[in-house]
Simulated assay, not measured.
Amino acid sequence: MPMLSDIAQRKKIEYFLNPLPRDAAILEIGCGARWVGDHLRSAGYTGYVGNDLFPPADIVGDIRKWRELGLKGESFDAIVAFEVVEHVDLFQEAFDLLKPGGTLLLTSPVPEMDWAMQLLEAVGLNQKRTSPHDHLIDFRTIPLFEAVSLRRVAGLSQWGIFRKPDGAERKLAA
């Protein structure tokens, strides 16, 4: 794996994952190589489930069809979606799956700097994208959720911790 990706993984563990309670029900959307799940399980987290379009995910399928995948609404304390929302709009699904007060943990390229991420990929310093970045979004405009913490990392990546409001029942406008 490229060096910058290794550094980013360590920083994401410290910033996003270590603060989660060990017994939290955690869904990772887009678990890919499963490094998040491997870390959480080895650190004693008991409620992790990974979802992706392809094996070896715990739940294989499109998260936008979560009911068909056997998932239950408002059943997760936290949802992790690292480097996913630039590929697919999943905010309504994350909202529906999180418990009131639940946490959404996101990373994605800064939209106006995606060109630089492509350069880093081309020279082998960052992981290659698995599909086009058709849904780049500025985290300051994320719908449905309250921003708890927003960070820009190296001017290229945005990291966000979002909270589902208590008692919230919202839908995105069609």
Rank of each mutant, 00 (worst) to 15 (best):
41 R>D: 13
173 A>M: 13
111 P>W: 01
164 K>M: 03
36 V>I: 15
74 E>T: 03
150 L>Y: 02
109 P>I: 06
78 A>L: 06
58 D>Y: 00
58 D>M: 02
64 R>N: 12
87 H>G: 01
171 K>Y: 04
27 L>C: 09
29 I>E: 02
41 R>L: 13
78 A>Q: 06
133 H>N: 14
30 G>A: 02
80 V>K: 01
102 G>S: 06
85 V>E: 01
165 P>K: 14
8 A>M: 12
25 A>N: 10
170 R>L: 14
9 Q>K: 12
102 G>F: 01
61 G>R: 00
39 H>P: 08
131 S>I: 00
41 R>H: 09
152 R>K: 15
164 K>E: 01
101 G>A: 04
171 K>A: 14
98 L>E: 08
138 D>C: 00
73 G>H: 03
97 L>Q: 07
12 K>C: 09
14 E>K: 14
30 G>D: 00
150 L>C: 05
140 R>H: 08
58 D>R: 04
69 L>Q: 05
156 L>R: 01
140 R>N: 09
128 K>H: 11
102 G>E: 05
23 D>G: 13
117 M>L: 13
76 F>I: 05
64 R>H: 09
90 L>D: 06
158 Q>P: 10
103 T>S: 14
28 E>I: 14
17 L>N: 08
57 A>S: 02
48 Y>M: 00
36 V>D: 07
80 V>L: 05
136 L>K: 02
146 E>D: 14
41 R>W: 04
172 L>S: 13
167 G>D: 11
44 G>F: 06
82 F>S: 01
23 D>Q: 13
162 F>M: 01
96 D>N: 15
54 F>M: 11
104 L>T: 05
83 E>V: 12
150 L>A: 04
76 F>T: 06
172 L>N: 13
64 R>I: 10
144 L>R: 15
149 S>W: 05
45 Y>T: 03
168 A>W: 12
55 P>M: 08
156 L>Q: 03
29 I>K: 07
16 F>S: 05
153 V>N: 02
123 V>E: 07
61 G>L: 03
30 G>N: 05
3 M>Y: 08
137 I>Q: 07
81 A>T: 13
76 F>G: 08
93 E>F: 02
43 A>Y: 03
73 G>W: 01
3 M>N: 01
2 P>S: 07
118 Q>R: 15
143 P>E: 09
36 V>H: 03
91 F>Y: 03
74 E>N: 15
48 Y>K: 03
160 G>A: 02
4 L>E: 04
45 Y>E: 08
107 T>F: 07
151 R>M: 06
13 I>R: 11
102 G>C: 04
13 I>P: 09
74 E>I: 01
141 T>N: 12
147 A>D: 02
170 R>W: 02
164 K>H: 07
93 E>R: 14
60 V>M: 03
137 I>N: 04
118 Q>A: 12
2 P>D: 02
133 H>Q: 11
4 L>V: 08
118 Q>H: 11
160 G>F: 01
166 D>G: 10
100 P>H: 13
127 Q>S: 12
26 I>M: 04
92 Q>G: 02
7 I>C: 04
